[in-house]
Each structure stands twice: as structure tokens, then as C-alpha cells.
């Protein structure tokens, strides 16, 4: 474990908790893409199947449990409890256009052709594009609430910190996982446009509005 990965994980946890709290306290999921949250729940489910078969550390196991619980709680709030506030008309990104190619790629490019490894690879590839429905929704509505922007900043920042973690691990222990690195770079690049707007606008208290 290194500081980059730890801060990255905490940023990820903060994003997840922030979103869950926002939906719960405002009792509304307006402006939130349910599809992205479904994809994140799928990402955690397929990545953490080793929860019961391999133990890395208490930290690792507890974070996995927290991520899975929060992901499903968020999906539940969006599609069940506050579904009346779910914005169907703007959450129209075709998620199947993400899941199918990613599923195919996971079969073709992976470290080991075993069910657990293919699912882990699927989860890595899917996570890199899972935010697209949310970014698409913001570009359609033309704006995002500031809390949603903070959520996206933390979420985008976590994988950017992981890239630094991978650089650090490569130089300090010669470890690198090309699949995770390439997917992590794609994921972070997707946020670049948003990062620019966030830094130039939200920091100064303006509302974030993506070019429609």
C-alpha cells in the first residue's frame, strides 16, 4: 500500500458516500444517471467475487464490502425508493453499447482464461467507461448540481491517483498490470473535459455546465 493508492481509495469512498448522502438527504436522484450507478454495481460485483476466496487484508476486505453495499444502496434509492425523481428522459445512454463490447474484450484480452479472471477483467474494462452515461446525461441537461460535480471530481480523481500508484509500484517493486493501467488511463482521460470545467468553474462557485 502507498499513499497514492490510499488517498485514491479514500477519494473513491468519499465520492460513493457523498452521492449516497446527497440522494438520501435530498430524497431525490434528479441529475443522477441510474445507468452509471447500475454499471458501478456490476463493476463491484464482478470484481469482488474473490471476496470469499482470497483474503488480502482487513482493509481490502472491508472496503470491498463497503463499496458493494453502497453501490446497491444507491441503485435501490434510484430505482426503487426515489424512482419518481429518476430522470428517465435524460438518462438515455445505451449502456448495452458499453457492456457488450467490454464483455467481448474481456474474453479476448485477459491475464488468465478462467471465470474469475475474465470477470475481473470485464470489471476493469467496464469501470473505465461506466461514467459515460452520467457525463452524457450532464451534457444533455447542460448542467450539474455542485454536489454532483464534487462527486465526479472525487470519482475521477481516484483513478488518476491510481495511475500515480502504478507508476510508484513499477519503480519501487517492479509491479505493473497493463490491463488495469490502460483501462485506468482511458477512464481518467474521459474525465479530462470535466476536470477542466470543474477547475475553471465549480471552484469559483459557478454551476458546472457542459457544452450541450
Amino acid at each position: 500500500m502507498n499513499v497514492f493508492r490510499l488517498v485514491g481509495d479514500l477519494s473513491h469512498l468519499l465520492a460513493i458516500i457523498m452521492l449516497l448522502k446527497k440522494i438520501w438527504s435530498s430524497r431525490s436522484c434528479a441529475g443522477i444517471s441510474g445507468k452509471s450507478q447500475l454499471l458501478f454495481a456490476l463493476v463491484f460485483t464482478t470484481r469482488y467475487l474473490d471476496l470469499f476466496t482470497s483474503f488480502i487484508s482487513v482493509y481490502n476486505t472491508s472496503m470491498k464490502v463497503i463499496y458493494i453495499l453502497c453501490a446497491y444502496a444507491t441503485v435501490y434509492l434510484i430505482y426503487v425508493k426515489f424512482k419518481a425523481t429518476y430522470d428517465h428522459n435524460h438518462d438515455t445512454f445505451r449502456a448495452e453499447f458499453l457492456v457488450v463490447p467490454v464483455g467481448g474484450l474481456a474474453f479476448l484480452v485477459n491475464h488468465d482464461f478462467t471465470p474469475l479472471e475474465i470477470l475481473w477483467t470485464f470489471s476493469i474494462y467496464l469501470e473505465s467507461v461506466a461514467i459515460m452515461p452520467q457525463l452524457f446525461m450532464i451534457s444533455k441537461t447542460g448542467e450539474a448540481e455542485s454536489i454532483t460535480s464534487h462527486y465526479l471530481f472525487c470519482l475521477g480523481g481516484y483513478r488518476a491517483l491510481y495511475i500515480i500508484n502504478w507508476l510508484y509500484r513499477f519503480y519501487s517493486e517492479g509491479f505493473f498490470d497493463l490491463i488495469a493501467i490502460v483501462a485506468g488511463c482511458v477512464q481518467t482521460i474521459l474525465y479530462c473535459d470535466f476536470f477542466y470545467l470543474y477547475i475553471t468553474k465549480v471552484i469559483y462557485g459557478q454551476k458546472l455546465s457542459l457544452p450541450a
Binding site: D50, I56, N60, Y67, E117, W120, D177, A180
Partner: peptide, 10 residues
């Protein structure tokens, strides 16, 4: 070995 196969990152 078993160690490498495990993904130790979240």
C-alpha cells in the same frame, strides 16, 4: 504463484 494471481488492489 498464488501471490501474483491475486489482485491486491481495489
Amino acid at each position: 504463484n498464488g501471490e501474483e494471481d491475486k489482485h491486491d488492489e481495489l
